[in-house]
Computed example of a mutant assay.
Amino acid sequence: MPAVTEPRTAPAGRRERPAKPALTREGVVATATALVREEGAARLTMRRLAQRLDTGPASLYVYVRDTAELQAAVLGEFLAGVDLAPVGAAGPWDERLRRVLASYAGLLHDYPGLARVAVVTRPSGEHYLALIEALLALLAEGGVPDDRAAWLVDLFLLVATASAAEHGTRAEEHTEAAADDAVARAVRGASADRFPHVARLVEDLLSGEGPDRARWFVDLMLAGAAAVPRPSPSLVGEG
Results as ranks from 00 to 15, higher is better:
residue 200 R to L: 15
residue 129 L to A: 15
residue 127 H to S: 12
residue 133 E to P: 00
residue 131 L to E: 03
residue 140 A to V: 01
residue 39 E to C: 03
residue 219 D to R: 03
residue 53 L to C: 09
residue 218 V to W: 08
residue 155 L to F: 02
residue 102 A to F: 07
residue 84 L to M: 03
residue 17 R to I: 05
residue 196 P to R: 04
residue 113 G to K: 00
residue 210 G to Q: 09
residue 124 S to G: 14
residue 232 S to Y: 00
residue 201 L to A: 13
residue 233 P to W: 08
residue 126 E to T: 15
residue 140 A to F: 11
residue 136 L to P: 02
residue 34 A to C: 03
residue 203 E to T: 15
residue 135 L to D: 07
residue 97 L to G: 06
residue 218 V to T: 10
residue 223 A to E: 05
residue 217 F to A: 05
residue 3 A to G: 09
residue 149 A to E: 06
residue 46 M to R: 00
residue 136 L to M: 14
residue 210 G to M: 11
residue 116 R to F: 04
residue 29 V to R: 00
residue 5 T to K: 13
residue 75 L to Y: 06
residue 97 L to Y: 13
residue 15 R to Y: 08
residue 86 P to Q: 07
residue 38 E to F: 04
residue 225 A to S: 06
residue 14 R to G: 02
residue 96 R to W: 13
residue 50 A to I: 03
residue 152 L to V: 09
residue 225 A to C: 05
residue 186 A to S: 14
residue 14 R to W: 11
residue 164 A to N: 09
residue 67 T to S: 14
residue 198 V to E: 12
residue 120 V to P: 01
residue 124 S to L: 11
residue 28 V to H: 07
residue 90 A to K: 08
residue 58 A to G: 12
residue 91 G to E: 06
residue 175 T to A: 15
residue 172 E to L: 04
residue 212 D to G: 15
residue 80 A to K: 07
residue 164 A to S: 12
residue 148 R to H: 07
residue 15 R to K: 13
residue 24 T to H: 05
residue 98 R to N: 09
residue 123 P to C: 13
residue 166 E to T: 13
residue 83 D to K: 02
residue 23 L to V: 03
residue 37 R to P: 03
residue 150 A to W: 00
residue 81 G to L: 14
residue 19 A to W: 05
residue 131 L to R: 06
residue 199 A to Y: 05
residue 142 G to W: 01
residue 136 L to S: 09
residue 215 R to C: 07
residue 97 L to H: 05
residue 119 V to N: 03
residue 28 V to L: 15
residue 80 A to P: 01
residue 131 L to I: 11
residue 102 A to G: 12
residue 200 R to P: 01
residue 223 A to D: 05
residue 62 V to F: 13
residue 185 R to G: 08
residue 111 Y to K: 01
residue 129 L to P: 00
residue 157 L to W: 10
residue 148 R to P: 08
residue 25 R to K: 15
residue 174 H to R: 04
residue 108 L to Y: 10
